[in-house]
Design a protein around this nucleic acid. Structure first.
Length: 638
RNA sequence: GCCCUUGUAGCUCAGCUGGUAGAGCAAUUGAUUUGUAAUCAAUAGGUCCGCGGUUCGAAUCCGUGCGGGGGCACCA
């Protein structure tokens, strides 16, 4: 006589074992129609699962994230079934639901083509049409293994092996096709609806290990309704429109070329944006007590051996050989150089904390497949700094770094920031006790920041634990930017010290921190966040002055000169095109302000402003304009 | 690095099964003097990514290298 407790607190009593389907029907007709799976005492189960004992039950519908996952999981099973029917001999590996969709990994000699995807989709629709019931069976572990061995599904054999001993080995059937699967699944193939689409094929290593063979992965997306599917596809399209590679070209900011893959050729406008960010940060760092330094880009191999980079990071380092056969490395990080500057002259505890910043250009030989526009490059400028301090100062210094970073993000329009804390990796330098100390101090700062955070086990830098600052952009994507790392190893390796209060020599702690991480990457993120429509104060070309006709060229030139004189980047468009044409052209170039000058303006000594993304006209005296926009030509916090 | 895919004018792209390239926009020149998202016309513009091969003949087919894109792995 199970008593079923529902999420709203109500209870239902049954006089025999009861299935989810029956419970849903008892609650309401509409719920039973929408029901996909259920949770029994927080465990996901098929609706057909029979409940014998008193339990808490929640019926899952497409509105729940578990429901959405179930739909996607079912869709991927149906895809795998379609693939095996269409392409006999194809072996199947794994096929989970993922964010916004699903994938399944296959092993087959011939590559799947986009045409194949169409065929597979068609087959899937046929399978769904048949609406065959999905059934679950529990198999003996041994039977499952032998069975899969017999039919040559070697990936499934491995998967059976990896199921923990205390768990059942279950298999799900739709029609004749079956798959090793933990479940749960919808009750029949027709339940998933028809709102799915196969999106792409790619390679993927078996079990995510690059030593294993490469499988073929087919990705798809699946939703409870046409509306949601359309919305998703629209979202993808919108994201593509924001692509900084496309906008960077359109806005004439930068380009890449074969001669230096992964390195940016900055054009005038892009570089102007870059420099605006640098001078903004200089100002912020000055105010926060940083001292800016600069160190060589090429340093002798011996320094990198001492610092540990040669051994731990060598694979990613560019090296150069001189005519006299000396080996130099092009710096992949600024820290060793910075320590050398610290090491000049004796330091006292009174000098600490000592904050040394550096806009250092670093080079890292990233794997070719990792390169991605400005977001992943081989040469980039870090807004780097190293803070030398005592162990007692770690937490406080970390907090002040966090505050600085948050203020800077806010100025640039990012208010939604989360932290990722990473502790010791497997490959590392330094004693475990040292790691214990650094990890504890950093974690304390993380907690004190009161920001949302997650812990990434084993993902710290080889010299110390770290936190990463992740920001969410206008369309909800997360970008890892700033970083803060505690380093109790490098100062010792490179012989840094200070004289303490008692006259003894001690080794300082070093904090590595970067605000944006990489200027290049951050600019990419900025462009995507704003769809290229950058805030006025940071836009490379801020104003375009447009005379209505040739007669007003002189006036337009004068206005342009006055604007440039107060430090706003302005140009005047004297080309022989009509007004409509120019407005269209410069709007598409995403210039924040267009100033129209015609007879009316000349007579009244005014300009008419048209702001990007608005067709309102705003007339203003030139004097007023200059005053107003001079004030807007700096960061909100300044 | 691995799998798939792709590389034609400054840009976006067309060019079927092999017969030495084409459009729109941009550029230049001329006409037009324009009041809030494309005025008209003319002109010029290309080692069809590089190298090698097949062929009487290659942008097109094959091989290879390099680059781009989508993933996987990587991201100290």
């Amino acid at each position: 006589m199970p008593i079923i407790k529902l999420p709203d607190g109500k209870t239902l009593e049954f006089n025999k074992a009861v299935s989810g389907k029956e419970i849903a029907e008892k609650i309401s007709k509409s719920l039973s129609k929408q029901a996909l799976i259920m949770t029994v005492d927080d465990e996901l189960k098929d609706l057909s699962y029979l409940i014998n004992n008193d339990s808490s039950v929640k019926i899952i519908t497409p509105k729940d994230s578990e429901g959405l996952d179930a739909i996607r999981h079912d869709t991927t099973h149906i895809m795998a079934m379609a693939v095996q029917e269409l392409f006999p001999g194809t072996k199947i590996a794994i096929g989970p639901a993922i964010k916004d969709g699903f994938y399944y990994d296959f092993s087959r000699k011939e590559p799947f083509t986009l045409k194949d995807l169409e065929k597979i989709e068609k087959k899937m629709r046929q399978i769904i049409e048949k609406d065959e019931p999905t059934k679950r069976e529990v198999w003996e572990r041994k039977k499952a293994k032998e069975h899969y061995k017999k039919i040559g599904e070697n990936y499934k054999v491995e998967l059976v092996d990896s199921i923990p001993e205390d768990q059942e080995v279950s298999v799900y059937y739709h029609g004749k096709w079956y798959d090793l699967c933990k479940g749960p699944h919808l009750s029949s193939t027709g339940k998933i609806g028809k709102y799915f689409k196969l999106t792409k094929v790619s390679g993927a290593y078996w079990r995510g290990n690059s030593n294993n063979e490469m499988l073929q992965r087919i990705y798809g997306t699946s939703w409870p309704s046409q509306k949601e599917l359309d919305e998703y596809l629209k979202r993808i399209e919108e994201a593509e429109k924001r692509d900084h590679r496309k906008l960077g070209k359109e806005m004439d900011l930068f380009h890449f070329r074969e001669e230096s893959p992964g390195s940016v050729f900055w054009h005038e406008k892009g570089w102007s944006l870059f420099q605006k960010l640098v001078s903004y940060m200089r100002k912020k760092q000055d105010q926060a007590g940083y001292k800016e330094i600069n160190t060589p880009e090429i340093l002798d191999r011996s320094l990198w051996e001492k610092s540990g980079h040669w051994e731990k990071f060598g694979e990613n380092m560019y090296t150069s050989e001189t005519p006299d056969e000396k080996i130099f490395a092009i710096k992949p990080m600024n820290c060793p150089g910075c320590v050398q500057v610290y090491n000049q002259g004796l330091k006292s505890y009174r000098d600490l904390p000592l904050k040394m910043s550096e806009f250092g250009k670093v080079h890292r030989y990233e794997p070719s497949g990792a390169l991605h526009g400005l977001l992943r490059v081989r040469a980039f400028t870090q807004d780097d700094a190293h803070i030398f301090c005592t162990e007692d100062q770690i937490t406080e210094e970390c907090l002040s770094v966090t505050n600085l970073i948050l203020e800077i993000y806010k100025d640039l329009g990012f208010e939604n920031v989360i932290l990722k804390y990473s502790d010791r990796p497997e490959v590392r330098v330094g004693e475990d006790q040292v790691w214990d100390k650094s990890e504890a101090a950093l974690l304390k700062a993380v907690k004190a920041s009161k920001l949302e955070y997650s812990i990434n086990k084993g993902e710290g830098a080889f010299y110390g634990p770290k936190i990463e600052f992740v920001l969410r952009d206008a369309i909800g994507r997360e970008w890892q930017c700033g970083t803060l790392q505690v380093d109790l190893n490098l100062p010792e390796r490179l012989g840094a010290s200070f004289v303490d209060r008692d006259g003894s020599k001690k080794i300082p702690v070093m904090l590595h921190r970067a605000l944006f991480g990489s200027l290049e990457r951050f600019i990419g993120i900025l462009i995507e966040n704003y769809s290229g429509k950058l805030p006025f104060w940071i836009a490379p070309l801020q104003v375009m002055v447009i005379p209505v006709s040739e007669d007003f060229d002189t006036y337009a030139k004068e206005v342009n000169q006055k604007i440039n004189n107060i430090g706003i980047n302005s140009e005047v468009d004297l080309k022989n095109h009509n007004l409509n044409y120019k407005i269209r052209e410069h709007s598409m170039a995403k210039i924040p302000l267009l100033l129209i000058c015609g007879k009316k303006e000349v007579d009244s000594n005014t300009v008419t402003i048209r702001r990007l993304d608005s067709n309102k006209q705003e007339n203003m005296e030139v004097k007023t304009f200059l005053k107003k926009f001079a004030a807007l030509n700096r960061a909100p916090s300044n």
